[in-house]
């Protein structure tokens, strides 16, 4: 297979974090990372909402907003810079409610960053637009509005974080999806969203986690493991489970996110 020059497959060594690393500083770091992505989404949401009266060029506007962010991701996958929020993204865009853009189904203005050996797209070096017509394996999904990343913000009018999960629509990879409702008056006209590659998030967070004395596990509200320095609790597992009972762990919320830092009680007490 040809090596891809644009999508590094090997994790880059990242500098150890400056300052003293604690469980609290790890939780703060997680919160800061997501806050930066949320700010990016706020900006996109406001620009899309402002442009809504002239519907015609909406796709062009969305493309101009999200593609630079996706290409920045490919260039600096783990750089701890102000653009770090963008560097995590593998997909982003706007999904319009069915009644808003012509047609029965939801309208996807969604772009994917450069991918290596994607089963549906092969190797891509630039940004590519999601073409749902070529995703026939998703035909069994009756209505995309039933999916969590659309249904929850539509029901709650709140920002929602979905995952980590294997995304079978776009990347066929392990991701976290952030979606925000876009409203026109009282009506939700769609969601603006971004997909975070779990493997890139790991590159950013692992140096912080490894700087701690004991194992640490980042989980979502369901206990689904995102990133872990406990080998018996890999990404995708659920905490608690038979090997890891709930009473063995302390949970520390990561501010502004649905994620928690889980640490073994005995070790956290040291």
């Amino acid at each position: 297979m040809m090596p891809s020059s644009t999508t590094p497959e090997t994790a880059r060594p990242t500098a150890r974090p400056a300052g003293r690393t604690t469980y609290v500083s790890c939780a703060t770091e997680v919160g800061d990372i997501f806050a930066r992505v949320f700010r990016t989404l706020d900006d996109w949401r406001d620009q899309i909402a402002a442009a809504v009266p002239d519907r015609a060029d909406l796709d062009i506007l969305v493309e101009s907003l999200v593609v630079p962010a996706l290409l920045a991701s490919a260039d600096s996958p783990a750089a701890d810079t102000p653009s770090a929020a963008e560097s995590l993204l593998i997909g982003a865009g706007f999904i319009a409610a069915p009644q808003y853009v012509n047609g029965r189904d939801a309208h996807f203005a969604w772009w994917l960053g450069p991918l290596a050996s994607n089963p549906l797209l092969g190797n891509t070096s630039g940004a590519s637009r999601l073409d749902l017509a070529t995703r026939v394996h998703t035909e069994y999904l009756r209505d995309f509005r039933e999916l969590e990343w659309y249904a929850v913000p539509a029901a709650t009018n709140q920002t929602h974080v979905t995952g980590p999960y294997v995304d079978q629509l776009c990347t066929c990879d392990y991701i976290i999806t952030l979606t925000k409702p876009v409203r026109l008056g009282e009506r939700m006209i769609g969601v603006v969203g971004a997909d975070i590659y779990v493997k890139r998030l790991e590159q950013v967070l692992l140096p912080h986690f490894l700087a701690l004395a004991g194992p640490v596990v980042l989980v979502n509200q369901s206990g689904r493991v995102v990133i872990s320095t406990e080998p018996t609790l890999p990404a995708g597992d659920i905490l608690p489970n038979r090997r890891h009972p709930a009473d063995g762990y302390d949970l520390l919320p990561c501010p502004g996110t649905p994620f928690l830092i889980a640490t073994r009680i005995a070790l956290a007490a040291i």
Binding site: Y140, V166, Q168, R224
Partner: peptide
């Protein structure tokens, strides 16, 4: 046929394994 394929794909998704999802999609195609 559509939904049987969909069911197997959902099982792959629930496994949390991107490789299994990709292989399931490839096999079905």
């Amino acid at each position: 046929r559509t939904n049987a394929g969909g069911f197997y794909l959902e099982l792959a998704v629930l496994s949390q394994s991107p490789r299994l999802v990709r292989e399931q999609i490839r096999l079905q195609a």
